[in-house]
Design a protein around this nucleic acid. Structure first.
Lengths: 177, 177
DNA sequence: GGAAATCTACTCGGATACCGCGTGTCCGAGTTATGGTGG
DNA sequence: CCACCATAACTCGGACACGCGGTATCCGAGTAGATTTCC
């Protein structure tokens, strides 16, 4: 399958909405963000705890709690989010086949295991270039590219949609004042 | 787990031995290559059929058959092998979450799905840089780096080991002339 | 001694079993603002 | 009118079920060289 999990995609899309939401200062709950994008709410909640541990978002508990960005959107790279959600897993897991050569017997000679495996080195280089590309774009970069495609009122529509759901919380059924 | 399968590692290590073997011109059987590196023989055989379909190696059938490189080692990149074994799978599988926005209802507007998803675009760029790195090193590059670490007689020892196993094929037990 | 049959080991391809991990769900615990209630 | 309590909805964390794909194994079919057998 793909190297990056579905959780990375979920998290990134949510964070893009949080970037827009930064202007108003209001927090957004995981349930509302999940309903907004039709993704499983409990699964999303689990992802957000990882984002919080990584210092990308801050969570407010209680009935009017929710998530907001922990630092400026220019200070959060795509790589940060990937690492927070998926951990720092590597593209290639070297099994040190070089030490299994039948000519060596039980104990491979020192020269054969000195330094990194040459195949592994190529893969590590490829991974480093990939991560450099992910570290080069920030949340704000992507959010602006999305915002440039949407019509002007779309962003405020989303803000209204989230605010509407947030303000009718805790109210008794049908007794909104 | 890791993005590149274990098959990629098996195949690359085998191909490195085939590079050394190119000088003598003799083919190497998958069974011998598997025993040389302690990897499962049947699994390796399956990998080699994929490498053959990709035009990386040629196979000779029959009792004294085996594998050899289909073209020069300078003409086979690491990316070629990865694609032959794992197929062209992508780092990131976009699920088009952008079209699931609750504000859209059943049919998302045209502007929301125009062009590639912005998150997907970042991932595609990262993947392109990774693949460029893998396409930059050839089998010969890696083989030379391995050969530089090994003592001089090691390469000939491997050739002798493989030749020894190849020549005692088809002979009746204990009746080698 | 030479031709035919047999045997061995190889490549090739499909079917299948196993198992770990990603994905998703469920549940309980602790927390905070709101609405209702009693003094 | 004010203090207090119950409720709703939130975050947090662990446990668990499900399904897919990577890994590995097995088996049968076809092929080519070495050996044996037979004329």
């Amino acid at each position: 399958m793909a190297h990056f999990s579905a959780g990375v995609e979920y998290a990134l899309h949510c964070l893009l909405f949080l970037v827009d939401r930064e202007t108003t200062g209001r927090a957004a709950s995981t349930r509302d963000l999940a309903d907004l994008q039709q993704v499983p709410p409990e699964y999303l909640a689990k992802l957000f705890t990882r984002l919080q541990k990584a210092g990308i978002i801050t969570a407010a508990e209680g009935i009017s709690g929710g998530m907001r960005l922990a630092r400026a959107a220019t200070d959060i790279t795509i790589l940060d989010v990937v690492h927070a959600v998926d951990g720092t897993k590597s593209l290639f897991q070297c099994r040190e086949i070089r030490r299994n050569c039948a000519l060596f017997g039980a104990h491979p000679p020192a020269w054969s295991v000195a330094g990194p495996c040459s195949i592994h080195a190529v893969m590590l280089d490829a991974q480093a270039r990939m991560e450099a590309a992910l570290a080069a774009s920030t949340l704000l970069d992507v959010a602006q590219r999305v915002g440039a495609k949407a019509p002007p009122q779309f962003q405020s529509d989303v803000i209204k949609w989230l605010d509407n759901r947030a303000t009718r919380r805790g109210k008794r059924e049908g007794r909104m004042k």
